[in-house]
């Protein structure tokens, strides 16, 4: 089973995933976490995992901007909740209306 971008690389380490997440955020693109248990190439829409907003800043009362570490924590949380699912991280650029990146961060963890 190949899932498009980065499918021909060895599985990404947590540090590598974090680096890509960091790249997405520095580009100003909007990250999305999606998961599906038995996906096929015909499935465009996977279930989305809501990314919790960052910590509330006590001075401004607004959530702090997302960080790469926060995104990887969210990916971890999704993987714990759905251990038999493929999980992918996508980025969307509203300016060009294009998905600028979409890759699998976790494959099903057998035996867990």
């Amino acid at each position: 089973m190949r899932f498009e971008t980065f499918a021909f690389l060895p599985p990404l380490s947590p540090q590598q995933v974090e680096a890509q997440a960091n790249h997405i955020l520095t580009q100003g693109h909007l990250p999305t976490i999606e998961f599906a248990e038995n996906p096929s190439s015909a499935d465009f829409y996977w279930r989305s995992w809501p990314i919790q907003p960052g910590r509330i800043n006590s001075l401004t009362g607004k959530p702090e901007p997302l960080t790469a570490a926060h995104l990887t924590n969210q990916l971890e949380a999704c993987a714990r909740r759905h251990p038999y699912a493929f999980i992918r991280l996508s980025a969307y650029d509203p300016k060009t209306r294009q998905t600028t990146l979409s890759f699998i961060t976790k494959t099903p963890q057998e035996g867990q």
Binding site: E4, T5, F44, A91, R97, Q98, T99, S102, F103
Partner: peptide, 14 residues
């Protein structure tokens, strides 16, 4: 076009 082809073929980021 560019975006439609990517979305139709589900090929992003490369």
């Amino acid at each position: 076009g560019l975006r439609g082809l990517r979305d139709t073929f589900n090929k992003h980021g490369r």
